[in-house]
Write a protein that binds this DNA or RNA. Structure first.
Ligand SMILES: NC(=O)c1ccc[n+]([C@@H]2O[C@H](COP(=O)([O-])OP(=O)(O)OC[C@H]3O[C@@H](n4cnc5c(N)ncnc54)[C@H](O)[C@@H]3O)[C@@H](O)[C@H]2O)c1
Ligand SMILES: NC(=O)c1ccc[n+]([C@@H]2O[C@H](COP(=O)([O-])OP(=O)(O)OC[C@H]3O[C@@H](n4cnc5c(N)ncnc54)[C@H](O)[C@@H]3O)[C@@H](O)[C@H]2O)c1
Lengths: 205, 205
DNA sequence: TCTCTCTTGTGAAAGCAATCACATACTCCT
DNA sequence: AGGAGTATGTGATTGCTTTCACAAGAGAGA
């Protein structure tokens, strides 16, 4: 029973399913049951079946799911069959780590443009890419048709950076600055703040 | 009407409230309403009031919340009044960025021990701390009474690293390896995987 | 072929979470 | 001092998510 309107919370789990399926492929699995997948993810088998049922029928009764097939279907659903070009803004300590991270390409992303506003950094080469002046960001992002950006600038510069990105037609932003940024409707934002994650755990200590 | 058993999802929002309150303090606010706080966070005022009501009555009718007071109360609830010593395992590109990150201390954390298994790195000084051999991890973590660790090792080493940490009485783990790790009940885990966050957004593009 | 076992996909039920709406109470202004 | 305006805290309600439970399909072995 395909796509009515899929809850965000379901969409949020699909990348986790996909990640685990790809590990299963590496391990040589050809078939996996919702039970085994759930065991690895700490999620109930029923929930996995229900989640997938939003998009179609991918399994075979009595057997389970063909791992490669389900992986390819999830890539299709998530629009990561190809490789999205991504802009990285802010090439400090964290930006360097991200630029050199080799885990993106197999997941459907490649950092193709890097920006900073520090004259000492502009022109330097990081991970095979030149660091561009943020002043050139509108032009370059437009020319490359970039839709996705990673923001790794100081908090004080984050909102202004995001505003520029949004004007450049960027529609998905991964924000590392520890601040709440605001964007117009239709622009996706995901935030990563390790301090927030740590504080979520200390409550229980 | 204080603490019955607070839902995890409520606890998960408290660090966001705290973060925003601290920005409000910097901006000179003394009082804030649930409406204004909600506007900044993209959360409904009613939800904020309901969340806080799990822990007590912090506001004043007709006025709002005393920003400093509420901040201090949230710090108390989240057990981040002091500074937790944290172990960092894996001092590669990402580990370096984390070790040098100055945003932790004001949030209640300080990386006090750094470990790696690369002989070329062991003994080097990063952010004023010596990189220790992972072989010494059990002893040092025990001696320092560390309860919180950040894992920034390759995926292939993550589960084994976590197993050691758990045996050393670490009870909260922030995992950057893009893999699902399993831990015994009572151990908190939070995962950060930028590729997962990006894939959550591409669905909507 | 028939039976037994396994696993999916899915309505129904149960369990959680978010929102509503208002009594209550505090502030500010005249 | 008193009234108008404002914002909290919370029971009731609505809405959403997860789990349950089972019919139906697939394969394996006798
Ligand atoms: N280092 C970490 O591990 C870490 C962890 C969590 C969050 N963060 C956050 O990520 C962001 C970057 O952290 P970092 O450690 O790399 O800091 P950093 O100071 O090393 O790097 C910031 C970079 O952004 C550049 N920059 C500043 N303003 C800019 C602008 N307007 N446009 C473009 N570039 C600009 C600076 O020149 C610098 O290169 C910060 O918001 C920080 O709070 C970092
Ligand atoms: N670089 C990034 O921006 C980024 C982003 C997301 C996730 N990650 C993940 O974070 C982890 C680290 O990434 P990185 O880019 O720093 O990789 P890296 O290869 O630069 O660093 C890994 C470090 O871990 C050390 N190490 C390896 N095995 C170890 C062990 N058993 N015990 C202790 N130390 C060990 C290595 O010596 C190295 O110093 C990886 O799992 C990676 O997938 C990195």
């Amino acid at each position: 029973m395909p796509t009515d309107k899929v809850p965000d919370i379901v969409v949020g789990r699909l990348p986790l399913y996909l990640r685990t399926l790809n590990y299963l492929i590496e391990e040589g699995y050809e078939i996996v049951s919702s039970h085994e997948l759930g065991r690895r993810l700490g999620i109930s088998p029923a929930q996995i079946r229900k989640d997938l049922s939003h998009f179609g029928e991918f399994g075979k009764q009595g057997a389970g799911y063909d791992v490669k097939y389900l992986s390819s279907q999830l890539k299709h659903i998530l629009h990561v069959e190809g490789v999205w070009p991504v802009a990285l803004v802010g090439c400090g300590a964290l930006g360097h780590a991200l630029a050199n991270y080799n885990g993106f390409v197999t997941k459907g992303f490649e950092i193709t443009l890097i920006f900073d506003n520090d004259p000492a950094k502009i022109g330097q080469v990081v991970a095979g890419k030149v660091i561009h002046d943020v002043a050139d960001m509108p032009r370059l992002i437009c020319e490359h048709g970039i839709r996705i950006a990673i923001v790794a600038v100081p908090s004080s510069a984050a909102q202004a950076t995001v505003d520029v990105l949004v004007r450049c037609q960027v529609r998905a932003i991964l924000n590392y600055a520890p601040i709440n940024i605001s964007v117009p409707p239709g622009v996706q934002v995901q935030n990563i703040d390790p301090a927030v994650h740590l504080q979520r755990m200390t409550y229980y200590l």
